[in-house]
Structure formats: C-alpha cells, structure tokens
C-alpha cells in the first residue's frame, strides 16, 4: 500500500447519527478515501461481508447490534483489518472492553477532526508497514510459541488462537526492537499513533495480554520485562 493507496483506502463508517456521519463522509472523501456508510450494526456486518475494506470506523451505541458485537464478528472473519472505535462512551471499562474485543484504537466524541484524520492515516500506514515487514519471514518463534504474522495464528503447544491486528503489530514492533528499552510513549506514538499524555493504560492492557499468551508465568515475565519508570524490553533466546 503506497501513500497514494493509503489515500485511496476504502473505509466502512458505522455511525447511527446521520449528522455526524454526513460530516465525516464529506471530510474523509475530501481526504481521498472511499467511504461506505452503515447506519446500524446489522447493516455494518452485511456490508463488511459483501465488500473488502481497509479500515472500519465503528460507533459503539448502535441499533440492532452494538459496536462491540460488530467488532467481534469482524474479527472472526478478518483478524487484520484496523478498527477505530468512535464513541461517546468514556469509561475505562468501555475502552478496555473495546480493545479486548479487537478494536485497535479508540477516539471519544467530541473529537478534533485533525486528530481523527491523523489516527486514520496512522492506522493505514501501520497496516502497510506491517504487510511489508511480514512478507519475507512471517513466522516467528518465542520459546515454545509460534506466531504466524501473516494469518495472525498463535500456537503454544497444542493450543492455537488468533491474535488481534494490534496485538500482532505491537509484538512485531517489540521483536524488531529486541533488547532495547521501549517507553510507553514510544509505543503509543509509533504503534498507536496516539497522544501519550492521555492513554498510557492502553499499552499496559496490550502488554499484559501478550504476556498471558506466551509467558509461562505472566506475573514473572521472561520475554517482555517491565523496566521501572522506563517502559518495556523484549528479550528472546
């Protein structure tokens, strides 16, 4: 996906508020993106099944099926598509739930147009970087775990499951920067493209999830270690 392709990306906008959707549709089209608009959860899933999208902007409070349910269904079919949750709900529980279900990023209403556009651009760029970086060697081994960055399959012993798109990107970033202390700020800026002042908890949520996957004892991690007041370091065999 070249920069030009990023601008040609096809976005599924799922928003029940007509006025907001109209404004977003106008702005995103002006940026060069192609936009499809779904008014409720049911329609969103139908449209997602019918067409290929590069990114989904997803509201949470939706008729018929809420954003969490839509995200879960989308993830079943496509573990890689970036999902940006756009919502009026601001509680930490909502954010955690959204990220756990498989959303990659979270922006709360009311938002600044420029910030939204930057985040979308960042997510599409990361997708491009990710696709490029896994092309040569999609399989990586940590201890007794095997990660296929192409289909996002994670295998530990006999158990196998799918990583979410962002879990994979984060892990990829940690692997590429093996042996170096990486601050939360750096992760937020480079992986999430987010303002580090606000959202450091997001990093911790994702790190603890990764630890649960491949550390034998997540409380005493061997691979992803916390460095007090600095961040994290990834150490592999």
């Amino acid at each position: 996906m070249s920069d030009e392709n990023i601008l040609n990306a096809k976005i599924l906008l799922v928003e029940d508020e007509e006025s907001l959707a109209t404004g977003l549709e106008y702005n995103l089209s002006e940026e060069g993106y192609r936009i499809d608009w779904a008014k409720d959860g049911k329609q969103a899933i139908e449209m997602f099944n019918k067409s290929d999208y590069d990114l989904i902007i997803l509201d949470i409070m939706l008729p018929y099926q809420n954003g969490f349910e839509v995200a879960a269904k989308v993830r079943e079919k496509d573990p890689q598509i970036p999902i940006l949750m756009l919502t009026a709900r601001t509680t930490v529980d909502d954010k955690v739930k959204g990220l756990e279900i498989g959303a990659d990023d979270y922006i709360t209403k009311p938002f600044h147009l420029q910030e939204l556009l930057l985040r979308i651009k960042g997510m599409l760029k990361r997708k491009k970087w990710y696709i490029k970086s896994i092309k040569q060697n999609p399989v990586y081994k940590i201890g007794n775990c095997e990660i296929n960055f192409d289909n996002l399959k994670f295998r530990k012993g006999k158990s196998e499951f799918n990583l979410t798109h962002f879990e994979a990107i984060l892990l990829k970033y940690l692997i590429e920067n093996k042996g170096r202390v990486i601050s939360r700020k750096e992760l937020l800026e480079n992986v999430w493209n987010m303002n580090p002042e606000v959202e450091t908890r997001t990093v911790d949520i994702f790190i603890s999830r990764l630890r649960k996957y491949f550390e034998d004892d997540p409380a005493n991690p061997v691979y992803i270690k916390s460095i007090r007041s600095s961040g994290y370091i990834f150490e592999a065999d």
Binding site: E17, S19, L20, G23, A88, K109, P110, F111
Partner: peptide
C-alpha cells in the same frame, strides 16, 4: 449530549 456536540464541532 455528545452526539450533537461532536457533530457541531466537526462541522
């Protein structure tokens, strides 16, 4: 409250 407010801010 936030939905119309977001829309106004966006416009």
């Amino acid at each position: 409250l936030k939905s119309p407010l977001s829309s106004i801010q966006l416009y």
